[in-house]
Structures are given as structure tokens and as C-alpha cells.
Simulated scan of single mutants.
Amino acid sequence: MNPSYDEAEQVLKLPNPYFDRGIRRGREEERKEMLQTIPIAIKMLQEGRELQLIVEKTGLSQREVEKIKQQLEHS
């Protein structure tokens, strides 16, 4: 017996603690990664490196690097 599309949709709507835990763990790892790359971006900005190079080397978005640059300029 094959489940119908509606039944599958209902199952997907059920709470899934494993999925939720995975999302939380992924966010924690992403946060740790960002905390490691931000000092690298700061150093590169202080050295006068181009934004695009910093984006490529750190994995941060251009918007994130620009935000860091603005904070450095105002400190």
C-alpha cells in the first residue's frame, strides 16, 4: 500500500526532534566557524586587502565583510 500525498504531507508536519536538533547543531557549528573567520577578516581588512579576496578566503558574505569594515572604521 502506497501512502498518499496527503498522508506524506501530514507526516512532514509532525514535530521531529532529530531534525530540530540537527538544525540547532548546524547553527552552533556555523556560529563557531564565523567566530574563527572574523579575526582573519579583520586582519585582512587592516592589511588593506580587497573585499572580494576576503570574501573568497573566509567564506563570509560580502555584506558581513562590509559590516566588519564599517565597525573597524567607527572604532
Rank of each mutant, 00 (worst) to 15 (best):
N16T: 04
E50Y: 10
L72Y: 11
I40Y: 05
Q62M: 12
L45W: 07
F19M: 12
E33R: 15
Q70A: 14
Q52N: 07
N2E: 10
K67D: 09
F19H: 12
V55I: 09
I23A: 05
H74Y: 04
T58C: 08
A41C: 11
K67S: 05
H74M: 13
L35D: 13
E29A: 10
V65R: 00
G26H: 11
Y18E: 14
L35F: 08
Q52G: 03
R21D: 10
M44L: 14
F19S: 09
R21L: 06
M1D: 07
I54G: 00
V11I: 14
M44K: 07
R25D: 12
E28S: 13
G48V: 05
Q70S: 15
Q71E: 15
Q52I: 07
E30T: 12
G22P: 01
L51P: 00
R31A: 14
Q52C: 00
P17F: 02
N16L: 05
L51E: 06
G22I: 02
I68S: 01
A8W: 11
Q46G: 15
G26S: 04
A8Y: 02
P3V: 13
T37V: 13
I40G: 02
E30V: 09
G22N: 04
I54M: 06
E9S: 06
E66Q: 15
I68G: 00
V11R: 14
P3C: 01
P17T: 04
K32G: 00
A41K: 01
Q52H: 03
I38W: 02
M44C: 10
E50L: 08
L35V: 09
E73Q: 15
R27K: 13
K32I: 10
V55N: 01
T37R: 14
I42W: 00
Q46N: 15
E28D: 13
E9F: 06
